[in-house]
Every structure is written in C-alpha cells, then in structure tokens.
Write a protein that binds this DNA or RNA. Sequence first.
DNA 1: CTATTATTCAATAGATTTATTGAATATATT
DNA 2: AATATATTCAATAAATCTATTGAATAATAG
Lengths: 219, 219
Amino acid sequence: MKGREFKDAMYDGLSKLLKALSNPFRLEIIEMLSQGEKSVEGIVQTTNLNFANASQHLQVLKNNNIVKSRKEKQYVYYSLVNNEFLSLYQQITKYAIHEIAELEKIMNRQREDNKALNAVNLDELETMIGNEDVLLLDVRPAIEFEFGHITGAISVPMNELMTQLKGIPLDKEIIAYCRGPFCVLADEAVKLLNEKGYHVRRLDEGYPEWKVKQLEINQ
Amino acid sequence: MKGREFKDAMYDGLSKLLKALSNPFRLEIIEMLSQGEKSVEGIVQTTNLNFANASQHLQVLKNNNIVKSRKEKQYVYYSLVNNEFLSLYQQITKYAIHEIAELEKIMNRQREDNKALNAVNLDELETMIGNEDVLLLDVRPAIEFEFGHITGAISVPMNELMTQLKGIPLDKEIIAYCRGPFCVLADEAVKLLNEKGYHVRRLDEGYPEWKVKQLEINQ
DNA sequence: CTATTATTCAATAGATTTATTGAATATATT
DNA sequence: AATATATTCAATAAATCTATTGAATAATAG
C-alpha cells in the first residue's frame, strides 16, 4: 500500500465514524444508551422517532461499532459498545458546550429559565458526597437508576416528584442530576423544588460522566 | 424554550460540528493546519484537491469555527481556531486508531511494510530527550519545522534525506517524526535509513501531539 | 493600465443521507 | 394453528453533500 492509499484509508475510516455521529437523533440515542441498555421501544418512547426510523439509526450506529445488540425473547436490546466510546462521546460534548459560543449561549438560557444556573460540577460534588446535609437526587426513570447511579443517590423519577415531595427533607441541600448536560429532567426538578422552597441545585453533567470519571480514577 | 426544543437545538449544534468533521479531505486539511498556518495553495499542494474544492472545504471548516483565516497580500492563510480544537481532534484520532479494529489493522500493515512497527511513543520519547546518543529527526517540510518543532530536533525534510545523509551520524539512535499518526514521511524515513544501516525508529505520533502534551503539562 | 496570480463564487449533476410507508420476519401468547 | 407484538427490511422521494466547471474578484507585478 502506497503512502497516499494508506492516508486515504485512514481518513476514510475516521470520517465514517464521524459521519455516524453527525446526526442529532443518533446523538440523542447515544445519550439514552449511555444510561444503560434499551430496547428499540425504549428508544422510541424517549425520542421523537418512529420504530422503523429508530431501527434504521440503530443499524447505522451498529455498523460503525458504536453500539452492540443482544436479542432476548422478542426484544432487541441495544447498548454502547464500550466505555472508551462513552468517554470519547463525553469529550466531544464537553468541547461543544465550552467552545461553541452558540451552544454555550443556548445552554445558559435554558439553565437560567429553570433557575439552574449555579450548577454543581463533578469536582465540587466529590467534596459534598458523604455530607449528611446533602441529598443527591436521581430524577431519571427508575430503570435507569437501577442500571447504575451515583453512589448515595436516591431515586425519585421526575414524573413522580410531585407525589413524593413529602419524602424530601426541606432542611437539606439537594443536588439533582439526570442523564447529562443536555438532559432537562434535573432542570425541571430544580425549578419545581425551588418554587416549593427547597434549597436545590443541579449537577452540570450526569450519571454517565460520573461513571467515566470513576473509571479513570480507579484505573 | 421548552425542554424538547432545547435538546433539539443542542444536538443540532453538536451534529453540525461533527458533520463538518465527517469528510476525509477536511480531516486531512485539519492535519495539515495542525502543523501551522497554510495558504490555500499550501493545502492544494499536499492534498489531491484542486483550488475551488479546497477553498470550498475550507469555507465549511471556517463556518463551523474549526479554522480561521487572515489575508496578507494576495494570499489567504488558514489555521486551526485554537488548541482546544486541536486537542479534541487528537482525542478522536487516538480513539479511532486504538478502538476501530479495521484502522488498527491498516496502520499496523503500513508500519510493517516500512519497518516502522517498533515505534516510540511520547512517554518513551520524554525519557530519551537530552540523551547524547539519541538524535531526533524532523522530516517534515522546512516551513513546518519553522512554525514549531520538538525541542532538540533537527530538520531534514524527507525529500532532502538522501542528499543530506552524510550529516546523520551512524552511531546514534535516531527517532524520526512528522505530522502525526497518519503521516507517512517518518515511515519512509525509517525505511530508507534502515536500509542504509542506521539504527532508527519512528515516533508513533507527531509534532502536534507533542505540542498538546506540552500544553497540558504546563497548565 | 494590463497581465498574472491567488482565491472565491455560482451553477450543476451525481452521490449520499434521511424520513416515510407498508410489507416481512421472528417470537410469544392464546 | 391463529393472533399479537417487536423489530427489521425494502422502496422511494426529498433533502443534503460533493466535485467539477468556468466565471468573478482582488491584489500584485510589469
């Protein structure tokens, strides 16, 4: 293989990976799968995609080694191929949030609207964990909490927050978190709890980011 | 802005960045610009693109805040927008090389063909720098060496290697490097020098990777 | 002022990507 | 066996991306 052919082959392969990532729906699917495996139906429920379309996007991700699948009964469960990919995805989103001015602006407006501007970051969270006066609140759906959650968190899914208010102490500092920086569940939780008089902030990232950070610490 | 609109806006913005990156020629342009600024003609010379096409790809990169340009006389000089982007690009390529089996295979074959399999990595290089018996050889074009090079390296552009052989000592361990992991200049240098009896290996990455590593160390 | 060089613009055809639709397949339930 | 459910497949039209071509612009040199 001549030098030119080699370069072409490498850039071709790299661009195929990036092409597979360069679609907003597929990015959203990746975020969903970074919470744990999901059936196609699970994907359909939390995105605006129909079955055939979701399946098609999942094929693209699978053909590019971004997700893998296993079949159980009539269901096909998809999940991210490994933590290395998850880490790469997070590095890309982190860059986008901090270096693309337009995205930074949109994000600030979203957080402002939901009184979630003074978010806690993962480093700050670390110093707070174990503190008796801090309550870590996971507002994702229960199934995602079961697949994995930040140590010490309690699960109160966003759609049950109103009915479970009595279980949440008014005198603690509450940190709400969800799927990641693009997830709005924690924003909604902050807004709602704030109006009820709670002292609450959101984590600026989510469970998958915490998980990757733990992996890096323990390696 | 409703939660759904927010998510859509963020994933849209992120996918636009990735779309701008998902073209093999644009990736090659990025690698060229990570050596320092270049005029459109400079890009045309080292890629297989014609002027209009190169200019078009450069516009795409510019519109997505990946490169910036300045005009001097009749020339337009393009460069990467900042080191944060350079670092992201390198993280993506690093993932591709190590986690995409097909690319890893192609790369190993390329290195095997050019006797460059036992490459030195940046950590190993660090322990060798300053050693009197090690000669660090930059085989990129002279202009790229001038824009920046690894401390202590000497410049012998690949196309002058044959004529400058007498200046290269036979008794030293030689480490050749060039633009990065996809660059074949160092492979060719290893092959040529090897056949002439030199003790030579290549750096598995290139000058831009060394530069980003220095930035991280000094921050 | 004219010619030359570097770059961009504009138009277009071909290739690729995507959403939609309806049918096909596979597994479980009755 | 018949039905229901979950998923994939196949075909297609619309949208987008890309390379090519030739013209337009801008700066310099003669």
